[in-house]
């Protein structure tokens, strides 16, 4: 068996009834592969990993892998993850969300977790659409594009998820695409090893819904578009804002040291005990 297959087998749940729910050609599988490789490389034990997800196509990811897994309500995955991490800080908590999950219904939780700098990793699969419910407009559907709820045209400006994370105070923010699978491996590994709130935005394609409605072609063609649109952070620094329009900046956007919530709370505990003893 090839090394990579062995690795995948080590982490898949063999008592789970396959096949998975995703469409053939979906980018979530690539994200899952990168997640497994990155966890394996970062050296965590299976027992120490908690995968928490919300609702939607991405929400179905944790069920297939052999960790402590939790599939929560729509948009609220980060809140459950917060409770898990604070109750048992030895666990490595990874949250998996889609674009609708993270910045529409769960936008409030996302910015507050970043602000608090709670030690966890948020992986956000951004495919510009609500896939599972049948291709409705999401907060990251680009202006002028079509969805089943904006068949005339989307008149809303879209969210830049990574920029939002940076502004809200995340300690680590990286962006990659499912075309650049190797980059995803390294971004996720860095994020998993980071102390504090880390975010990896994964640009993916929904050829079944978004691609079909906007005539963007097959899954392969949409991945080629990701390749053509992507520019590295280093290259982007030398480009003008108008040149960056319609480009996807990939790489590490932010990596900084900030006080981590759990460490700060440990100080509060010491202080509280002092006060109690006085």
């Amino acid at each position: 068996m090839a090394e990579v297959t062995k690795l995948i087998h080590k982490y898949l749940r063999h008592d789970k009834k396959f096949p998975n729910v995703w469409c053939p050609g979906c980018g979530i599988g690539i994200m899952l592969g990168a997640l497994i490789r990155a966890i394996d490389r970062s050296g965590y034990e299976k027992d120490d990993i908690v995968l928490v997800s919300g609702i939607g196509c991405s929400g179905r990811l944790p069920v297939y892998v052999d960790f402590n897994t939790l599939h929560t309500t729509h948009g609220r995955a980060i809140t459950f993850a917060t409770g898990i991490k604070l109750a048992k800080p030895s666990l490595k908590v990874i949250v998996i969300m889609g674009d609708g999950d993270a910045v529409a219904i769960g936008g409030n939780h996302f910015i507050h977790a970043a602000r608090r700098n709670i030690d966890m990793t948020a992986l956000i699969l951004n495919n510009n659409i609500y896939g599972m419910t049948g291709g409705q407009n999401s907060p990251t559907t680009p202006y002028g594009m079509r969805s089943t709820t904006t068949i005339y045209s989307n008149i809303e400006q879209s969210f830049n998820i990574s920029e939002l994370a940076v502004t809200a105070g995340a300690a680590f923010v990286g962006r990659g695409t499912v075309y650049h699978a190797r980059l995803l491996d390294s971004l996720m590994e860095k994020a998993f090893l980071k102390q504090g709130f880390s975010v990896v935005e994964i640009i993916s394609h929904c050829h079944t819904q978004y691609g079909r409605q906007n005539r963007l072609g097959t899954a392969v063609e949409m991945m080629e578009q990701q390749r053509d649109q992507a520019v590295t952070v280093e290259k982007a620094e030398r480009m003008k804002p108008e040149e960056l329009k319609d480009k996807i900046v990939i790489g590490v956007l932010v990596d900084k040291e900030l006080p981590v919530y759990q460490d700060e709370y440990e100080r509060i505990r010491e202080r509280a005990k002092e006060v109690m003893g006085r």
Binding site: L70, T79, T82, G83, I84, L86, A87, N108, H112
Partner: peptide, 25 residues
């Protein structure tokens, strides 16, 4: 915090119950 427990003020009540369920798990 005096008894090594955790108190957190969340951003809303939805988040509060989410965190409570997570901590219980």
């Amino acid at each position: 915090p005096q008894v090594d427990g955790t108190f957190i003020q969340m951003e809303d009540e939805i988040a509060s119950l989410g965190a409570v369920i997570g901590a219980s798990l």
